[in-house]
Amino acid sequence: MTLKDLTKPWAAFNYGFLDESAKRELRRKMLKAVAVPGYQVPYASREVPMARGWGTGGLQATLTLLKPTSVVKVIDQGADDSVNAVSIRKFFARVGGAVETEDTQKATIIQSRHRIPEEKLREDQILVLQVPDPEPLRAVQPDMSIAREMHGDADYGQLWLVLYEQLVKSGRIIQGSSYPSMVNGRYVISPSPIPRWDVKKLHQADHLTILSAGREKRIYAVPPYTNVEPLVFDDVPYRVEDHQDKTCYRSNVTGFFMNELPQDDGSSRHELSDSHFGVKQIRRNEGEAVEIAKTWYNNGRMD
């Protein structure tokens, strides 16, 4: 045997950038994440050609799933053309030969930062959420080792206390995004900083969601048809953002999550946060035959 036998022919990078050993590790960890919904599985999280905090966790999950026939949609804050989303999507095409799309319905893998599309995902689609901070207990326990013990004991009393304090002080729960949610009745997760509007889309969904934090080196999952319940008190119902009556000034559509755009005169305008959903609505308004899938919310409500 020679040293050469131990290696492969030289290539600048592997298919999908990650080497086989990195992919195998991610495969093993993703399967464990699926097997124990909501539990944060530690993984090595290799460096990738993007800065930590810029979607490296989502990137590694997607790269592991990627094949040349994958159709990939990448969104940041709901927008496909947000600069970092563009950069990530280009990377998938560059190292994986993947087909790029902006259409939620056409995608096989959707990697997203901070939003879940308004169109309902199907069971053949995988949602990969980028996670900056996977630890819902961080605010009450910055020490990760202790937080891990608390998860082990399902010791979430302090989280309830935080929510209760908000109620007492402010009259309502003021947790904005990253709303702590109980998965399969066992683990509390941070659903990543998606708005409260989107958390309900994880509950008993048709699709698989992988949540991956590259910098913090944790991966967790919400399988399809799994309970995801925001922590709430029996007598204080969960409230999504008050966007049900807002109308998008571009597409004239009402009842979805909106971006608020401050105006010079002191007022605000609103536009759909899910940018391609907006594009499709506009095209439809202009008479094009555009296929828009069922949406999670109808008339601003979710069943």
């Binding site: 600048a12 990078f13 592997n14 298919y15 999908g16 086989e20 094949k67 040349p68 190292v95």
Partner: peptide, 9 residues
């Protein structure tokens, strides 16, 4: 950059 997977990949 290798954009085609090998048979193993």
């Amino acid at each position: 950059l290798s954009i085609l997977p090998t048979a193993d990949d």
